[in-house]
Design a protein around this nucleic acid. Structure first.
Length: 566
RNA sequence: CGGGGUGUGGCGCAGCGGCUAGCGCGCUUGGUUUGGGACCAAGAGGCCGCCGGUUCAAAUCCGGCCACCCCGACCA
C-alpha cells in the first residue's frame, strides 16, 4: 500500500478529548474516527490490525475444534424475557420496534440465540461436545463509554459457546479454551493475568477474566506474589487482620455529639476506624437492607448483590433510611428488627467495637458479635485490598489495575434448562446440555496491545498484529536512484509475501520518519542517497534503538527471515 | 443517573459586548529544499453546537436544550 493513497491521515497534534495512550495514538495515527459517544469508524490501517487479531483467534479456536458461524444482530426481545435476562441487562440493551411493533434488541451477547440454535440441532450425546463461535458486532448502551476503544457501545466481539454432556467434559472444554486464549494473547504480544471473576449479567458459576495490566485499566486485580492467587476485586477474598483479641467488656453508651461518619467518630473517640462497626444501608430491588461491616473496610457491592440475589442495588436514600426508623449516622445493629440484616465476616475480626446507639449524638462502646446483636446473614462481602492476607497462602496481597480483554464462564444449565436444550444420553435419558461461554473484545484487545506497546514516538506493533510488517521510506524523493530502488524494493518485498506500507509521498525526511514511528510497523526500511552510496539500505526494528545498514543484495531474503522465521 | 468540564475551518487554540472572526498546524497552486515534523509567495476553507431572550448591535450577556470529554455505579 502506498501512503500517498492511504485513506486516513496522521495528525501532528493529538486531539484534546483523548486521555489515555491508546486513544491518543489511535487518533493521532488516523486509525479511528469517532461518530458518537462510544461509536467509532475503523480506518483502513486499523481494520488490518483488527483482521489480523481475528485471524489469530480463528486459528487458535479452529485448532481446538471450534466451528465458526454467524448469528443475527437483531433478536426478538421475548427471548430475553424468557430467560429473564432483560432484567439483568436492563437499559444496557438497545431496543427498537419493527413496523409491526414487535420489540427487537440489538444483540449485546448471544447465549439465547445459540441455545435456540443448539436445541434445534442437538439431540444426542453423539453431537457433543460442541464449540461454536462467531466474530460479530455487539451493541451495549454502556452508561459511560470511555478511553477510545477501551469501552464502547458498538464493538467487535469474538464470542464462543460450548456444549457438553457432563461437568467433567465441560471442565475439559473450559481448560482447552483457556489454553487457546493464552496462545491468542501471547501471539497478540500481550502480557496478561488470569483472574478469578464475578460472572455478572452473563450468569454462571465459575468464571475467569484475562487481564492486561495497564494503568488505564478500569479493573483492580488482587494478586498474591507468593502462590499466584489472582482475582478481580469484585470477587477477591482476603484475610482481614484481627485487630483486637481482648475479652468482651460491658457495653457502654457514650455521647458523640454531631459525629456521624466513621472518620468523625473514630477521631472523636481516639480509636482507629477498624475498631468501629459501620452501618451501610442499601436499597435492594426496592427493599432497604442493613449491612454491618468493620469501619475500616468497604462493602463489596458485587459480593453483596450475589449474596442476597438482587438485580438493582444502590445506597438507600435519606428518606428510605428515615422510613425504617433508623437514625442516619447513628444506626445501630443492636436490637434491630423488621429489616434484613447482612453482616460481613469482618465483624468477627476484632472485639469491643464502637457502634451506633440509634439515637442522635450517641454511640455504644464494647459491642461484640454475637453477644450483643443478631444478623440474618453473616458472609464475606468485604472489598479486598493490597496489604491484606492471601486467602490461599496468607502472604501479603498486591493490587494492580487491568483491562479486561477476555472473559470465560462456566454457564452450567442456566440457559439449556430454561430454553429446553436437551440431549439424550447413552441410556436414552434426557438432560439439559451443559454450557460455557467465552468472549474477547477485539477493539479492546487492540487498544490494550497499544497501551502495552508504545513509546513517546508512537505505537510499537507486536509483529503478528501489525497492520503492515514493514514501512518502506525513501528519503530525497527527487533523486531518481532512490525512487527507482524504492519502487523495486516495494515490488520485491510484496512479491516475497511481506505487507509493506510504502511512503511514496514527497515530504521532508522528518515528516516521514515521524510518521513511521507513529504508525509503528515492526521494520522500517530507509532508502536514501546516503545508503545508496554503498548500495545498501538502512533497516531499523521499531522496538530497537539502533539501525543497521544492509546491502541491497539479498535484503529481501533477510527481511523475510526476520519477519517470517521458519 | 450524580459530580466536574468543554463546544469557534480537518487538528490544536485565541477572541468573551463595537470594524469584514483571528493565530499555529494541516490543505491547494507555483518555486526553492530533502536523514528527524523545511522555506518563500499566492490561495481555499467558518450556520462561532442549537433554539429563544436582552440590546441600535451578540461568538461575546441571560435562559433553555443538545453533543462530547473526565470522575463514580456497568462490562468484552
Amino acid at each position: 500500500m502506498k501512503v500517498s493513497q492511504l485513506f486516513g491521515k496522521t495528525l501532528r497534534q493529538t486531539p484534546a478529548e483523548a486521555e489515555n495512550i491508546s486513544h491518543q495514538l489511535l487518533l493521532k495515527a488516523g486509525m479511528i474516527q469517532q461518530l458518537a459517544s462510544g461509536v467509532y469508524s475503523y480506518m483502513p490501517v486499523c481494520l488490518r490490525a483488527i483482521q489480523k487479531i481475528e485471524n489469530i483467534m480463528r486459528d487458535e479456536l479452529n485448532a481446538i475444534g471450534a466451528q465458526e458461524l454467524q448469528m443475527p444482530v437483531l433478536q426478538p426481545y421475548e427471548m430475553w424475557v424468557d430467560t429473564e435476562r432483560n432484567l439483568a441487562f436492563g437499559k444496557t440493551m438497545f431496543t427498537l420496534n419493527d413496523r409491526r411493533e414487535r420489540t427487537l434488541v440489538l444483540g449485546p451477547t448471544h447465549e439465547e440465540i445459540i441455545t435456540d440454535l443448539v436445541r434445534h440441532n442437538v439431540q444426542s450425546y453423539r453431537d457433543l461436545p460442541l464449540m461454536l463461535y462467531q466474530i460479530q458486532t455487539k451493541f451495549r448502551d454502556e452508561p459511560r463509554p470511555r478511553g477510545g476503544l477501551l469501552r464502547v457501545r458498538e464493538f467487535g466481539m469474538k464470542d464462543m459457546y460450548s456444549f457438553d454432556a457432563d461437568a467433567e467434559s465441560l471442565n475439559s472444554t473450559y481448560s482447552k479454551v483457556i489454553e487457546a486464549y493464552k496462545r491468542i494473547y501471547e501471539r497478540c504480544g500481550l502480557q496478561f493475568l488470569i483472574a478469578e471473576a464475578d460472572s455478572g449479567a452473563i450468569g454462571g458459576k465459575e468464571s475467569h477474566e484475562f487481564m492486561v495490566v495497564a494503568d488505564s485499566g478500569e479493573d483492580v486485580i488482587i494478586n498474591c506474589p507468593s502462590c499466584n492467587y489472582t482475582a478481580n476485586v469484585e470477587r477477591a477474598e482476603s484475610v482481614k487482620h484481627k485487630n483486637d483479641s481482648s475479652e468482651p467488656l460491658p457495653m457502654e453508651e457514650i455521647a458523640t455529639p454531631g459525629m456521624k461518619t466513621i472518620e468523625e467518630v473514630a477521631n472523636f473517640l481516639s480509636v482507629p476506624p477498624g475498631k468501629t462497626l459501620k452501618a451501610v444501608l442499601y436499597s435492594c430491588d426496592g427493599a432497604v437492607i442493613y449491612v454491618s461491616i468493620r469501619g475500616d473496610i468497604e462493602v463489596n457491592e458485587v459480593k453483596l448483590k450475589n449474596a442476597i440475589g438482587c438485580h438493582e442495588l444502590r445506597l438507600a436514600t435519606g428518606e428510605e433510611v428515615a422510613a425504617t426508623g433508623l437514625v442516619a449516622g447513628y444506626a445501630s445493629p443492636i436490637g434491630l428488627q423488621g429489616i434484613k440484616r447482612v453482616a460481613d465476616q469482618s465483624i468477627t475480626m476484632g472485639a469491643n467495637f464502637v457502634a451506633g446507639a440509634n439515637k442522635a449524638g450517641a454511640h455504644v462502646k464494647n459491642v461484640n458479635y454475637p453477644r450483643d446483636f443478631e444478623v440474618d446473614l453473616l458472609i464475606d462481602i468485604a472489598t479486598a485490598r493490597a496489604g491484606e492476607g492471601c486467602p490461599k497462602c496468607g502472604a501479603t496481597l498486591n493490587a494492580v489495575k487491568g483491562i479486561e480483554v477476555g472473559h470465560v464462564f462456566k454457564l452450567g444449565t442456566f440457559f439449556s434448562e430454561r430454553m429446553g436444550a436437551n440431549f439424550l444420553d447413552r441410556e436414552g435419558a434426557s438432560h439439559p446440555v451443559i454450557m460455557g461461554c467465552y468472549g474477547i473484545g477485539i477493539g479492546r484487545l487492540l487498544a490494550a496491545a497499544i497501551e502495552q506497546n508504545n513509546d513517546e514516538k508512537g505505537i510499537i506493533w507486536p509483529a503478528p498484529i501489525a497492520p503492515y510488517q514493514a514501512y518502506l521510506c525513501p528519503l530525497s524523493t527527487d533523486n531518481e536512484d532512490v525512487i527507482e530502488t524504492a519502487d523495486k524494493l516495494y515490488a520485491d518485498l510484496s512479491a516475497a509475501g511481506i505487507d509493506v506500507l510504502y511512503d511514496d509521498r514527497v515530504e521532508s525526511p522528518g515528516v516521514k520518519l515521524n510518521d513511521a514511528d507513529l504508525l509503528g510497523m515492526p521494520i522500517r526500511v530507509v532508502v536514501s542517497p546516503r545508503t545508496l552510496k554503498n548500495t545498501s539500505v538502512e533497516v531499523k526494528l521499531r522496538h530497537e534503538k539502533e539501525s543497521t545498514i544492509m546491502p541491497l543484495e539479498g535484503v529481501v531474503e533477510k527481511l523475510r527471515d526476520i519477519l517470517l522465521p521458519k
